[in-house]
Design a protein around this nucleic acid. Sequence first.
RNA 1: GGGGCAGUAGGGUAGCCUGGUCCAUCCUAGAGCGUUUGGGACGCUUUGACCCCAGUUCGAAUCUGGGCUGCCCCA
Length: 477
Amino acid sequence: MAEDTGGLPPRSDFSAWYNEVIRRAEIMDVRYPVKGLYVWYPFGFALRSQTYTLLRGLLNRDHEETLFPLLIPETEFMKEAEHIKGFENEVYWVTHGGLSLLEVKLALRPTSETAIYPMYALWIRSHADLPLKLYQIVSTFRCETKHTRPLIRLREITSFMESHTVHATWDEANEQVEYELGLSQEFYRDLGIPILISKRPDWDKFPGADFTMAIDVVMPDGRTLQIGTVHHLGDHFSRTFGITYEDVNGEQQFGLQTCYGISERCIAAIIGVHGDDKGLVLPATVAPTQVAIIPVIVGKRGDEILAAGEELESELKQSGLRVKMDTRDMRPGAKYYHWELHGVPLRVELGPRDLDSRQLVCVNRLGAKTIISRENAAESVKKLLGEVHDQILARAESHLESRLMTATTSEECCRKLDGNVMAVHWCGCRECADKLEELTNASLLGTEIRSRYVIDDEGPCIICSKLGRAALVGRSY
RNA sequence: GGGGCAGUAGGGUAGCCUGGUCCAUCCUAGAGCGUUUGGGACGCUUUGACCCCAGUUCGAAUCUGGGCUGCCCCA
């Protein structure tokens, strides 16, 4: 697992940079011998753990965590026609138990609606059982036909958070959609990642949903990455699976449902949005190591410096920080490169000069150097971590802003599109969308845009001039 | 969905066309010893590979076929 030395490809060559940084910063190993399946290195897994701890914390405010089986019987899986259509080309099937053929073959879940909802039908009896809000974080399997990519396009999605809620009314479910969009916004803000929320066009919604709201991020190459979706399922699934409750009048009603998903693409977003030519830049909220202490051992004072480092390390740990002192037998410079590659937000240098002056040299991941007093080090360090988080968020926001452009003609849209995301007006019809996609060679991502960078007022459609709302157009992953 | 390139030690490569000269090589990494340490240290010793399966051949990293995997470009 040892890393190479020497520079990374520049982040401006995003594909090459991404592939290298994934390997060299020990996020994932792509050498597992099955297409589209990758191995988490311990460091990558630690980043995943921190990120999902954050997500769990937000969800646990109003959801409960659960765990459903991986295998779904064909009989349940095939119940919802529209849903099957959306997934049937990508489903893995378990057909054998040992050497004998199974009577009912079993799907590896591509998503868990058809595993969860038959149980919901048993669990929900009365209006008092509602709302029901559960989530699970599991592996799901999709036999992707497109080019697979670590964290971005996988055949085993290893970190799929799926939330499934049931409500008494359509409006209540709709409120839940809004709540979960807000929750996502909070999650991504904590990761320093500005997002775009939009309503997917009807032909691009989740199979079986009333509508789909999508969360996208803009990667450094200007391509968008969908990093979350919230679906209003209406009563499609509750009718199929018989999820009914008795209302206050004693009448049976169908439940109204939402589902909501976030995958390890959120990790790809952290890597892509914040990284730079030196490697990862991790937000302090999820960095497995927030502070790296680098002892600078000179001459005969080694023991003294190491002892002071240990004292500092335990003091910072006691205040709740994730700290590591790097005692490896390497030059300090080599350690700086190592921790920069791994995105550690703050490095604290401790050498003889600092020992004598009762000070610490702190360098944040963006390169800013601050000298703090050894007294109240924990407090000062926390302040510095807060500052660097604000800075990476601000940097990511200005990047997004610089990539978001508007156009009033399709010609202008094509001209500006390269490396950018375009906000244009669109009447809402399929024909114009197809035409726009053909002209721009990009996708219509969605409409009803929620972003403080895009004003979602009405205007003449870029294709047919009929009045319509703003829509996003871009190339996506 | 279509097209292309590639797979040689932990990483990067040469060799492949024209089969034998190959115990390949450079950088780096790993192990050991010593000297070092304020931005990628140095010396010595040492470990380590031709993606898989068939075929052709006296002989295959090299040629042929198939598979697996990775990557790039286009739709």
